[in-house]
């Protein structure tokens, strides 16, 4: 037995794997994630390669989508309703909200189907199943980066200038990536068992779009409902992005760090959940 344990320490080679009575022995989360990284990278690359294959505009779509929202909603909000944009040019203000929003909505809308769609592969080869939604998250992180770069261009073009606070975009984006990874992992897995989720997620996304101060200012919220924006990770990401890029202020660190900590915990929980139900996934799908 000790020989087997020694072998098992060499990353999968010689590893003893046991499945019994409807479950199987798992690795600890840390080891599981570490062993999954090479496949996660390959899978993310595949998702990225495949996304805009044979499309005319390709990666430009990652900008066109939020641009269209900006043109339509922004036109109504700023042009017709004259909503407040915290005293800053509306385009910079709204784009700062659209960058995290586009990332959250595109990932969650696609990933809810992702594990169901991967069943032809998952039914033949074992791999940690959370790789499938997480690969999408990684592939869309590139779009988030592009959107953020364009935000900087817009801010400069509107003559707002940049301050050192712009570097706080890194922790802000990492926080929202962690949240999206957690939600994506959880929803993709539950959707295998309960297919209704495929219809619920688009609905939730519409509510999230309306209920989050993306196209309007957080100050529109009545004071006694402001706490909603503190617990909504997307709202924290949106307001933080605005503060650091448009208002040249540091984010609310306590809120940001709290959200990040909860997000990491949620991701850990989501992977634990996949690990627990993994032996049944292929049977159910």
């Amino acid at each position: 037995m000790s020989e087997a344990v020694d072998l098992a320490s060499k990353d999968g080679a010689g590893a003893v794997r046991t499945a019994a009575d409807g479950r199987w022995e798992h690795d600890r989360i840390g080891r599981r994630v570490r062993l999954a990284l090479p496949l996660l990278a390959a899978w993310a690359k595949k998702e990225y390669n495949i996304r805009y294959r044979q499309s005319l505009l390709g990666i430009a779509w990652s900008v066109i989508q939020p641009l269209a929202i900006l043109a339509i909603f922004g036109g109504i909000m700023a042009g017709v309703l004259h909503v407040s944009s915290d005293g800053k040019p509306y385009i910079s203000f709204a784009w700062a909200g659209l960058v995290p929003w586009t990332f959250v909505s595109s990932v969650l809308l696609i990933t809810v189907q992702s594990l169901i769609g991967a069943m032809p592969v998952a039914g033949k080869v074992y791999f940690p199943r959370e790789i499938v939604p997480l690969a999408q998250v990684c592939a869309f992180a590139i779009d988030l980066l592009i959107g953020t770069s364009i935000l900087i261009v817009i801010v400069l073009a509107q003559g707002l200038g940049l301050s050192v606070t712009i570097f706080a975009l890194v922790p802000v984006d990492l926080m929202i990536i962690a949240w999206v990874a957690a939600f994506a992992t959880f929803s993709a897995t539950v959707a295998v068992f309960i297919r209704d989720l495929r219809f619920v997620v688009p609905l939730l996304m519409q509510l999230l779009f309306i209920g989050t101060p993306i196209m309007y200012s957080a100050t529109l919220f009545p004071a006694r409902f402001r706490w909603i924006n503190d617990i909504n990770p997307l709202a924290v990401a949106v307001t933080s992005t605005r503060r650091v890029a448009v208002l040249h202020a540091w984010p609310q660190w306590d809120l940001l760090l709290a959200q990040a900590a909860v997000a990491v915990a949620a991701l850990w929980l989501a992977i634990s959940y996949v690990r627990a139900v993994e032996p049944r996934l292929v049977d159910v799908a």
């Binding site: 080679a13 590893a15 003893v16 019994a20 199987w24 595949k46 033949k124 080869v125 074992y126």
Partner: peptide, 30 residues
């Protein structure tokens, strides 16, 4: 290790390559 036994025990020792299908994961567009 794609499915788990309802009862009983399955043990494998070593890296497993599963050739249940040729070209597993092939994407037509790639």
């Amino acid at each position: 290790r794609v499915i788990a036994p309802t009862s009983g025990r399955v043990t494998t020792r070593g890296r497993v390559a599963s050739l249940i299908e040729l070209g597993v994961g092939f994407q037509p567009d790639l």
